[in-house]
Amino acid sequence: MKYKNILVEEQEPIAVVTINRPKKLNALNQETIRELHNAFKNLDAEKEIKVIILTGSGEKAFVAGADILEFADFTVKEGNNLAAKGQELLFNFVENLSTPVIAAVNGFALGGGLELALACHFRVASHNARMGLPEVSLGLIPGYGGTQRLPQLVGKGRAMEMIMTAGMIDVERAVEFGLVNHVVSQEELLSHCKKLADKIANNSSVAISHAIKAVNASFKNTINGYAVEIEAFGTCFGTADFEEGTSAFLEKRKANFPGD
């Protein structure tokens, strides 16, 4: 599939999705959100792709925010629809994707850009990365899950400060907050993420998809996360991956998971 605003590179078992609007610092508009949705949906359906890495083009920005020109004159109803549609198509979609998604944050991750990184399963940043939610400086609040996912990761007080001050934090503070897992040079960013992806790809993709579902359930007030974990744990016993994994362990060899 051809895209206007993103690039997709598949090198099994890893795919790299690059948001490619460098003149706009990779700002998210509705067209880019739709393209990202389609790319993630298609990659998730490919059995050979075990991990997806998401990054931005150029050396300045992962995603520097939403494209403000697109919604500067929106009404209340249009604003509601913008947030709801974006959550459905991209942010919630990525968070609940069965294929792990690593955010390779290669520069500014602001507003919708940070919210997109938050929706990924974990984050690796380059030394020049800067992160923040500046929406209140525009008379808005984060609309793509920032008020929900940021407190889950960094705690209520830190999230409140970041949102209320509309300021940016550097990678040292991001690591301290638990916002990113690793910090590397920009030159090493993709290779480091690929090394992590290779480690993930060696494991059972079926079990990982169940683990994603169980971990996400713990953050939903209407769902008993323990019950989801128990059900997912039991389901794993009926998979070909479980049969292969246990056989490989007992036979003292490396597992070759079929992904079923």
Rank of each mutant, 00 (worst) to 15 (best):
F237G: 02
I49F: 12
S191A: 11
S185C: 01
I49M: 13
A197K: 12
E172W: 00
F122S: 01
F249Y: 12
G107D: 04
A207V: 05
A66G: 15
Y226S: 06
H182K: 09
N26L: 13
T235P: 02
Q87N: 13
E172N: 10
V94R: 04
K47P: 09
V175A: 13
N38G: 11
D260T: 09
K199G: 08
Q30T: 05
P258M: 05
L54W: 08
L43E: 11
R173G: 01
G157E: 13
F62N: 03
N5D: 15
E229S: 15
N96E: 15
A15F: 12
G113L: 01
S209Y: 06
K4I: 10
R34H: 02
K220W: 00
E70L: 08
P22R: 10
H210K: 15
N128V: 01
V94K: 04
D260C: 03
E59G: 09
F62T: 02
T239V: 01
E59C: 05
F62C: 04
I230T: 10
F74T: 05
N224C: 06
N26R: 13
P151V: 06
K220A: 01
L153Q: 12
T32Y: 05
A174K: 04
E229K: 08
A159C: 03
T165H: 03
P151E: 05
I53V: 15
F177Q: 06
D260I: 04
S205M: 10
I68N: 10
E172M: 03
H127C: 02
E48W: 01
F219W: 11
E10Q: 15
L36T: 11
K213N: 14
K220C: 01
A197M: 10
V105K: 00
I212M: 01
S191W: 07
L43W: 08
K2C: 06
A109R: 01
E31L: 04
I208S: 00
K4E: 15
A166D: 00
L28G: 10
N106E: 12
M164F: 01
L133G: 09
E12S: 12
N128I: 05
D67Y: 13
Q11H: 14
I200K: 08
K23A: 14
A66K: 03
T246I: 15
V215R: 09
K60C: 08
A72D: 05
P258W: 06
A166T: 02
K199F: 08
G132P: 09
E135G: 00
P22M: 09
L190A: 06
K77E: 15
F108C: 02
I6Y: 05
A227F: 07
N29K: 03
I52Q: 13
I53F: 10
A125E: 00
S218R: 11
T239H: 03
N29Y: 08
T75N: 09
V101S: 05
G157Q: 12
T75E: 12
K23R: 12
D170M: 00
E231H: 07
K77R: 13
V154M: 06
N96K: 14
E243K: 13
G107C: 01
K23I: 09
I223F: 09
D241T: 04
K77Q: 14
L110T: 14
I141Y: 06
K24M: 14
